[in-house]
Design a protein around this nucleic acid. Structure first.
Lengths: 142, 142
DNA sequence: TCTTGAACCTACAGCCGCTGTAGCTCCTAT
DNA sequence: ATAGGAGCTACAGCGGCTGTAGGTTCAAGA
Protein backbone atom coordinates (compact mmCIF):
# COMPACT_ATOMS: atom_id res chain seq x y z
CA UNK A 1 0.00 0.00 0.00
CA UNK A 2 1.35 3.34 -1.09
CA UNK A 3 0.92 6.74 0.48
CA UNK A 4 -0.18 9.59 -1.72
CA UNK A 5 3.29 11.09 -1.54
CA UNK A 6 4.93 7.91 -2.79
CA UNK A 7 2.38 7.63 -5.58
CA UNK A 8 3.13 11.23 -6.52
CA UNK A 9 6.86 10.60 -6.67
CA UNK A 10 6.51 7.40 -8.69
CA UNK A 11 4.31 9.00 -11.31
CA UNK A 12 5.84 12.44 -11.38
CA UNK A 13 2.60 14.06 -10.23
CA UNK A 14 1.94 16.41 -7.37
CA UNK A 15 -0.02 15.32 -4.34
CA UNK A 16 -2.68 17.95 -4.95
CA UNK A 17 -3.08 16.83 -8.51
CA UNK A 18 -3.86 13.31 -7.38
CA UNK A 19 -6.46 14.58 -4.93
CA UNK A 20 -7.85 16.73 -7.73
CA UNK A 21 -8.16 13.70 -10.02
CA UNK A 22 -10.04 11.92 -7.28
CA UNK A 23 -12.32 14.89 -6.81
CA UNK A 24 -13.30 14.98 -10.47
CA UNK A 25 -13.79 11.23 -10.54
CA UNK A 26 -10.80 10.38 -12.72
CA UNK A 27 -9.13 8.39 -9.95
CA UNK A 28 -11.32 6.19 -7.74
CA UNK A 29 -11.55 6.84 -4.02
CA UNK A 30 -8.79 4.82 -2.38
CA UNK A 31 -8.83 3.00 0.91
CA UNK A 32 -8.06 4.99 4.04
CA UNK A 33 -6.13 4.31 7.21
CA UNK A 34 -7.97 4.57 10.51
CA UNK A 35 -6.68 8.09 10.75
CA UNK A 36 -8.15 8.97 7.36
CA UNK A 37 -5.05 8.96 5.15
CA UNK A 38 -5.23 7.58 1.61
CA UNK A 39 -3.55 4.26 0.81
CA UNK A 40 -3.15 3.21 -2.82
CA UNK A 41 -2.90 -0.15 -4.59
CA UNK A 42 -0.77 -1.09 -7.55
CA UNK A 43 -3.83 -0.70 -9.78
CA UNK A 44 -4.06 2.93 -8.72
CA UNK A 45 -0.41 3.38 -9.63
CA UNK A 46 -1.06 1.94 -13.10
CA UNK A 47 -4.08 4.09 -13.64
CA UNK A 48 -2.32 7.26 -12.58
CA UNK A 49 0.67 6.45 -14.78
CA UNK A 50 -1.68 6.06 -17.70
CA UNK A 51 -3.30 9.39 -16.96
CA UNK A 52 -0.02 11.21 -16.54
CA UNK A 53 1.39 9.76 -19.69
CA UNK A 54 -1.70 10.67 -21.70
CA UNK A 55 -1.46 14.18 -20.26
CA UNK A 56 2.17 14.35 -21.41
CA UNK A 57 0.85 13.55 -24.86
CA UNK A 58 -1.58 16.43 -24.55
CA UNK A 59 -4.85 14.52 -24.17
CA UNK A 60 -7.56 16.38 -22.28
CA UNK A 61 -8.88 14.94 -19.06
CA UNK A 62 -12.19 14.25 -20.80
CA UNK A 63 -10.44 12.31 -23.56
CA UNK A 64 -8.50 10.38 -20.94
CA UNK A 65 -11.66 9.55 -19.09
CA UNK A 66 -13.04 8.10 -22.29
CA UNK A 67 -9.87 6.17 -23.06
CA UNK A 68 -9.97 4.64 -19.59
CA UNK A 69 -13.59 3.61 -20.02
CA UNK A 70 -12.90 2.09 -23.44
CA UNK A 71 -9.93 0.16 -22.13
CA UNK A 72 -12.25 -1.60 -19.71
CA UNK A 73 -13.80 -3.59 -22.57
CA UNK A 74 -10.77 -5.43 -23.97
CA UNK A 75 -12.81 -7.47 -26.44
CA UNK A 76 -14.28 -4.59 -28.38
CA UNK A 77 -12.56 -3.31 -31.53
CA UNK A 78 -10.35 -0.33 -30.85
CA UNK A 79 -12.04 1.95 -33.37
CA UNK A 80 -13.16 4.45 -30.76
CA UNK A 81 -9.73 4.62 -29.19
CA UNK A 82 -8.12 5.30 -32.53
CA UNK A 83 -10.73 7.93 -33.26
CA UNK A 84 -9.85 9.80 -30.05
CA UNK A 85 -6.15 9.62 -30.80
CA UNK A 86 -6.67 10.76 -34.38
CA UNK A 87 -8.86 13.65 -33.36
CA UNK A 88 -6.15 14.74 -30.97
CA UNK A 89 -3.51 14.40 -33.65
CA UNK A 90 -5.54 16.59 -35.96
CA UNK A 91 -5.88 19.22 -33.23
CA UNK A 92 -2.12 19.14 -32.70
CA UNK A 93 -1.51 19.52 -36.42
CA UNK A 94 -3.87 22.47 -36.59
CA UNK A 95 -2.09 24.12 -33.70
CA UNK A 96 1.23 23.55 -35.40
CA UNK A 97 0.05 25.28 -38.55
CA UNK A 98 -1.08 28.26 -36.55
CA UNK A 99 2.07 28.42 -34.44
CA UNK A 100 4.22 28.28 -37.55
CA UNK A 101 2.37 31.23 -39.03
CA UNK A 102 2.89 33.00 -35.74
CA UNK A 103 6.61 32.32 -35.77
CA UNK A 104 6.90 33.56 -39.35
CA UNK A 105 5.10 36.77 -38.50
CA UNK A 106 7.09 37.39 -35.33
CA UNK A 107 10.35 36.79 -37.14
CA UNK A 108 9.37 39.17 -39.91
CA UNK A 109 8.32 41.82 -37.44
CA UNK A 110 11.49 41.56 -35.39
CA UNK A 111 13.71 41.30 -38.44
CA UNK A 112 12.37 44.53 -39.88
CA UNK A 113 13.08 46.56 -36.79
CA UNK A 114 16.32 48.45 -37.14
CA UNK A 115 16.70 49.16 -33.44
CA UNK A 116 16.14 52.90 -33.48
CA UNK A 117 13.68 54.95 -31.44
CA UNK A 118 10.35 53.70 -30.17
CA UNK A 119 8.61 56.06 -32.56
CA UNK A 120 10.03 54.18 -35.52
CA UNK A 121 9.82 50.70 -34.07
CA UNK A 122 8.56 48.25 -36.65
CA UNK A 123 7.23 45.96 -33.94
CA UNK A 124 4.85 48.61 -32.71
CA UNK A 125 3.95 49.63 -36.24
CA UNK A 126 2.96 46.13 -37.16
CA UNK A 127 0.92 45.83 -34.00
CA UNK A 128 -0.82 49.12 -34.74
CA UNK A 129 -1.52 48.65 -38.43
CA UNK A 130 -3.70 45.75 -38.96
CA UNK A 131 -3.13 45.58 -42.68
CA UNK A 132 0.60 44.98 -42.27
CA UNK A 133 0.13 41.67 -40.61
CA UNK A 134 -0.45 38.39 -42.33
CA UNK A 135 -1.99 36.64 -39.36
CA UNK A 136 -5.68 35.96 -39.27
CA UNK A 137 -7.78 36.75 -36.25
CA UNK A 138 -8.20 34.69 -33.16
CA UNK A 139 -9.02 31.49 -34.97
CA UNK A 140 -8.75 29.33 -31.92
CA UNK A 141 -5.91 28.55 -29.54
CA UNK A 142 -2.30 28.81 -30.37
CA UNK B 1 -18.34 58.69 -29.83
CA UNK B 2 -18.73 54.95 -30.11
CA UNK B 3 -20.85 52.60 -28.08
CA UNK B 4 -19.20 49.53 -26.63
CA UNK B 5 -21.02 47.36 -29.14
CA UNK B 6 -19.69 49.32 -32.10
CA UNK B 7 -16.20 49.20 -30.65
CA UNK B 8 -16.54 45.46 -30.27
CA UNK B 9 -17.64 45.02 -33.87
CA UNK B 10 -14.87 47.23 -35.26
CA UNK B 11 -12.13 45.41 -33.38
CA UNK B 12 -13.52 41.91 -33.52
CA UNK B 13 -13.78 41.73 -29.73
CA UNK B 14 -16.70 40.82 -27.54
CA UNK B 15 -18.40 43.40 -25.38
CA UNK B 16 -17.55 41.52 -22.21
CA UNK B 17 -13.93 41.32 -23.20
CA UNK B 18 -13.75 45.09 -23.49
CA UNK B 19 -15.28 45.52 -20.06
CA UNK B 20 -12.84 42.93 -18.76
CA UNK B 21 -9.89 44.90 -20.21
CA UNK B 22 -11.21 47.97 -18.45
CA UNK B 23 -11.55 46.08 -15.20
CA UNK B 24 -7.93 44.91 -15.25
CA UNK B 25 -6.73 48.38 -16.21
CA UNK B 26 -5.67 47.57 -19.76
CA UNK B 27 -8.24 49.93 -21.24
CA UNK B 28 -8.86 53.28 -19.52
CA UNK B 29 -12.26 54.09 -18.09
CA UNK B 30 -14.23 55.77 -20.86
CA UNK B 31 -16.70 58.62 -20.64
CA UNK B 32 -20.27 57.76 -19.77
CA UNK B 33 -23.66 59.03 -20.91
CA UNK B 34 -26.00 60.47 -18.28
CA UNK B 35 -27.59 57.07 -18.06
CA UNK B 36 -24.25 55.43 -17.35
CA UNK B 37 -23.39 53.86 -20.70
CA UNK B 38 -19.81 53.84 -21.97
CA UNK B 39 -18.86 56.07 -24.92
CA UNK B 40 -15.49 55.60 -26.61
CA UNK B 41 -13.14 57.90 -28.52
CA UNK B 42 -11.02 57.11 -31.55
CA UNK B 43 -8.01 56.74 -29.26
CA UNK B 44 -9.80 53.94 -27.45
CA UNK B 45 -10.44 52.24 -30.79
CA UNK B 46 -6.74 52.47 -31.64
CA UNK B 47 -5.70 51.11 -28.30
CA UNK B 48 -8.11 48.22 -28.44
CA UNK B 49 -7.03 47.36 -31.99
CA UNK B 50 -3.45 47.26 -30.78
CA UNK B 51 -4.37 44.97 -27.93
CA UNK B 52 -6.42 42.63 -30.08
CA UNK B 53 -3.75 42.44 -32.68
CA UNK B 54 -1.06 41.69 -30.14
CA UNK B 55 -3.35 39.00 -28.70
CA UNK B 56 -3.69 37.50 -32.18
CA UNK B 57 0.08 37.29 -32.20
CA UNK B 58 -0.05 35.45 -28.89
CA UNK B 59 1.32 38.13 -26.57
CA UNK B 60 0.14 37.85 -22.97
CA UNK B 61 -1.89 40.67 -21.47
CA UNK B 62 1.07 41.48 -19.22
CA UNK B 63 3.38 41.77 -22.20
CA UNK B 64 0.82 43.96 -23.97
CA UNK B 65 0.55 46.18 -20.94
CA UNK B 66 4.29 46.66 -21.07
CA UNK B 67 4.31 47.29 -24.81
CA UNK B 68 1.65 49.95 -24.38
CA UNK B 69 3.62 51.64 -21.60
CA UNK B 70 6.81 51.58 -23.66
CA UNK B 71 5.06 53.02 -26.68
CA UNK B 72 4.21 56.09 -24.62
CA UNK B 73 7.86 57.21 -24.70
CA UNK B 74 8.46 57.56 -28.43
CA UNK B 75 11.94 59.04 -27.99
CA UNK B 76 13.47 56.10 -26.16
CA UNK B 77 15.31 53.37 -28.04
CA UNK B 78 13.13 50.37 -28.77
CA UNK B 79 15.42 47.85 -27.11
CA UNK B 80 12.85 46.84 -24.51
CA UNK B 81 10.15 46.39 -27.11
CA UNK B 82 12.37 44.15 -29.18
CA UNK B 83 13.28 42.18 -26.07
CA UNK B 84 9.61 41.46 -25.36
CA UNK B 85 8.98 40.40 -28.93
CA UNK B 86 12.05 38.21 -28.98
CA UNK B 87 11.21 36.55 -25.72
CA UNK B 88 7.80 35.77 -27.11
CA UNK B 89 9.31 34.42 -30.32
CA UNK B 90 11.55 32.13 -28.30
CA UNK B 91 8.56 30.86 -26.35
CA UNK B 92 6.72 30.17 -29.60
CA UNK B 93 9.73 28.31 -30.98
CA UNK B 94 9.99 26.21 -27.84
CA UNK B 95 6.33 25.32 -28.09
CA UNK B 96 6.78 24.38 -31.71
CA UNK B 97 9.58 21.98 -30.86
CA UNK B 98 7.44 20.33 -28.24
CA UNK B 99 4.38 20.13 -30.44
CA UNK B 100 6.40 18.58 -33.24
CA UNK B 101 7.64 15.88 -30.91
CA UNK B 102 4.06 15.35 -29.87
CA UNK B 103 2.90 14.98 -33.46
CA UNK B 104 5.67 12.52 -34.20
CA UNK B 105 4.75 10.40 -31.20
CA UNK B 106 1.02 10.48 -31.92
CA UNK B 107 1.61 9.52 -35.52
CA UNK B 108 3.84 6.64 -34.52
CA UNK B 109 1.33 5.43 -31.95
CA UNK B 110 -1.60 5.59 -34.34
CA UNK B 111 0.37 4.14 -37.23
CA UNK B 112 1.36 1.07 -35.23
CA UNK B 113 -2.20 0.20 -34.31
CA UNK B 114 -3.55 -2.47 -36.62
CA UNK B 115 -7.18 -1.85 -35.71
CA UNK B 116 -7.90 -5.08 -33.86
CA UNK B 117 -9.32 -5.52 -30.39
CA UNK B 118 -8.92 -3.10 -27.51
CA UNK B 119 -6.75 -5.63 -25.74
CA UNK B 120 -4.13 -5.38 -28.49
CA UNK B 121 -4.47 -1.69 -29.18
CA UNK B 122 -1.08 -0.07 -29.59
CA UNK B 123 -2.43 3.27 -28.55
CA UNK B 124 -3.34 1.97 -25.12
CA UNK B 125 -0.12 0.01 -24.88
CA UNK B 126 1.98 3.07 -25.52
CA UNK B 127 -0.03 5.02 -22.98
CA UNK B 128 0.42 2.26 -20.41
CA UNK B 129 4.08 1.51 -20.91
CA UNK B 130 6.12 4.48 -20.18
CA UNK B 131 9.26 3.13 -21.74
CA UNK B 132 7.69 2.85 -25.17
CA UNK B 133 7.21 6.54 -25.54
CA UNK B 134 9.82 9.01 -26.67
CA UNK B 135 8.17 12.03 -25.15
CA UNK B 136 9.64 13.68 -22.09
CA UNK B 137 7.49 14.59 -19.13
CA UNK B 138 5.42 17.65 -18.71
CA UNK B 139 8.17 20.09 -19.55
CA UNK B 140 5.88 23.07 -19.77
CA UNK B 141 2.92 23.89 -21.98
CA UNK B 142 2.25 22.43 -25.32
C1' DT C 1 6.92 4.90 25.53
C1' DC C 2 7.18 9.39 24.21
C1' DT C 3 8.32 13.05 21.16
C1' DT C 4 9.27 15.18 17.20
C1' DG C 5 8.50 16.71 12.59
C1' DA C 6 7.52 15.27 7.97
C1' DA C 7 3.74 14.07 5.62
C1' DC C 8 -0.98 13.94 5.50
C1' DC C 9 -5.87 16.03 5.82
C1' DT C 10 -9.87 19.53 4.28
C1' DA C 11 -11.45 23.64 2.32
C1' DC C 12 -10.90 27.21 -0.39
C1' DA C 13 -8.68 30.96 -3.28
C1' DG C 14 -6.03 32.02 -7.40
C1' DC C 15 -3.89 31.50 -12.04
C1' DC C 16 -5.06 33.11 -17.47
C1' DG C 17 -8.17 35.14 -20.59
C1' DC C 18 -12.02 35.30 -21.24
C1' DT C 19 -17.33 33.74 -21.64
C1' DG C 20 -21.93 33.24 -20.05
C1' DT C 21 -25.89 34.21 -17.06
C1' DA C 22 -29.47 36.78 -14.39
C1' DG C 23 -31.92 40.57 -13.66
C1' DC C 24 -32.05 44.89 -14.31
C1' DT C 25 -31.92 49.90 -17.01
C1' DC C 26 -31.26 52.86 -21.06
C1' DC C 27 -31.58 54.63 -25.71
C1' DT C 28 -33.57 55.15 -30.06
C1' DA C 29 -36.70 54.29 -33.89
C1' DT C 30 -41.33 54.06 -35.00
C1' DA D 1 -45.65 56.42 -25.94
C1' DT D 2 -43.79 52.16 -26.52
C1' DA D 3 -41.16 48.31 -27.85
C1' DG D 4 -37.08 45.94 -28.01
C1' DG D 5 -32.23 45.92 -28.90
C1' DA D 6 -28.37 47.25 -26.50
C1' DG D 7 -26.36 48.49 -22.40
C1' DC D 8 -25.45 47.94 -17.23
C1' DT D 9 -23.49 45.29 -12.73
C1' DA D 10 -22.18 41.32 -10.37
C1' DC D 11 -20.86 36.99 -10.25
C1' DA D 12 -19.98 32.00 -11.63
C1' DG D 13 -17.52 28.86 -14.66
C1' DC D 14 -14.15 26.96 -18.08
C1' DG D 15 -9.39 23.67 -17.90
C1' DG D 16 -5.99 21.87 -15.22
C1' DC D 17 -4.01 22.45 -11.89
C1' DT D 18 -1.27 25.05 -7.83
C1' DG D 19 -0.83 27.26 -3.44
C1' DT D 20 -2.25 28.48 1.22
C1' DA D 21 -3.99 28.09 6.03
C1' DG D 22 -4.74 25.63 9.81
C1' DG D 23 -5.23 21.45 11.61
C1' DT D 24 -4.20 15.94 12.26
C1' DT D 25 -1.68 11.52 11.71
C1' DC D 26 2.10 8.50 11.26
C1' DA D 27 6.63 6.53 11.79
C1' DA D 28 11.33 6.86 13.28
C1' DG D 29 14.56 7.93 16.81
C1' DA D 30 15.71 8.81 21.98
Amino acid sequence: MLTIGTLAKRTGSKVQTIRYYEQIGLMPEPERTEGGQRRYSGAALDRLSFIRHARDLGFSLDAIRELLTLSDNPGQPCTDIDAIAQKHLRAVEARLVRLEALRRELRRMIGECSGGAVSECRVLEVLRDHGECLMDHGSGNL
